[in-house]
């Protein structure tokens, strides 16, 4: 019996070839995933906030954009809606956020004390609220609905009770309300 020749057809060579092919396939799969993520990002399907913004939680109630009278939903000159909210142990302000359907919505939120979460059920809005920093998200709701908005980060022993709500209403109804009030919410309902 003769030994298989070294070189092109040796077992070692065959094994190395199989490895190389598999490594190539693996790399192509991963490259494809990265390119998909980049394209989705470039088309603004959903993107993380571009820059880091800070705010002092000790003076939220005194000055700046998160004073009490400025919280809630505001109709912007360009027709979009700006929502400002804060989280604190163990509630959100406003506790019920009112937004119109089929309208670009920008959310700006922060925390007054510890780290909180800000998640809107059945949507892509999913933020961390870190005291000292402002979190932002852009979204659009395509259906009228009553949605839950839990805090999803442990924030102390009352964490399990920190559930806000969000109400998506018809655009016309929202515009009607916005004509009379500078800031809207659905806390009273």
């Amino acid at each position: 019996m003769t030994l298989p020749p070294a070189g092109k057809n040796s077992a070692e060579h065959v094994a190395a070839g199989a490895e190389r092919r598999w490594a190539t396939v693996s790399l192509v799969i991963l490259l494809l995933l990265v390119v998909m993520a980049a394209i989705a990002g470039a088309h603004q399907a959903i993107m993380p906030q571009a820059k880091v913004e800070t705010v002092d939680p000790r003076s939220l109630h005194i000055s700046g954009e998160f004073t009490e009278g400025n919280l809630g939903s505001a109709l912007q000159p360009d027709g979009s809606v700006m929502v400002r909210a804060i989280g604190q142990q163990y509630s959100f302000t406003p506790q019920c956020i009112l937004v119109p359907k089929d309208t670009p919505v920008t959310i700006r939120a922060t925390s007054a004390d510890v780290v909180h979460g800000f998640l809107i059920e059945n949507s892509n809005v999913n933020l961390m609220l870190v005291p000292g920093y402002i979190s932002t998200a852009s979204t659009r709701f395509s259906r009228t609905a009553n949605l839950t908005m839990p805090c999803h980060e442990f924030c102390g022993v009352g964490h399990e009770g920190m559930w806000g709500r969000i109400q998506v209403i018809d655009k016309a109804a929202f515009l009607k309300l916005a004509a009379n009030q500078r800031r809207l919410s659905c806390v009273a309902q």
Binding site: G41, Q49, T110, L127, L129, V130, Y133, T136
Partner: peptide, 13 residues
């Protein structure tokens, strides 16, 4: 930290 406010989009990517 994808959902966090203290890191910008570039480093997240």
């Amino acid at each position: 930290l994808f959902a966090d406010p203290e890191v910008g989009a570039g480093f997240k990517f």
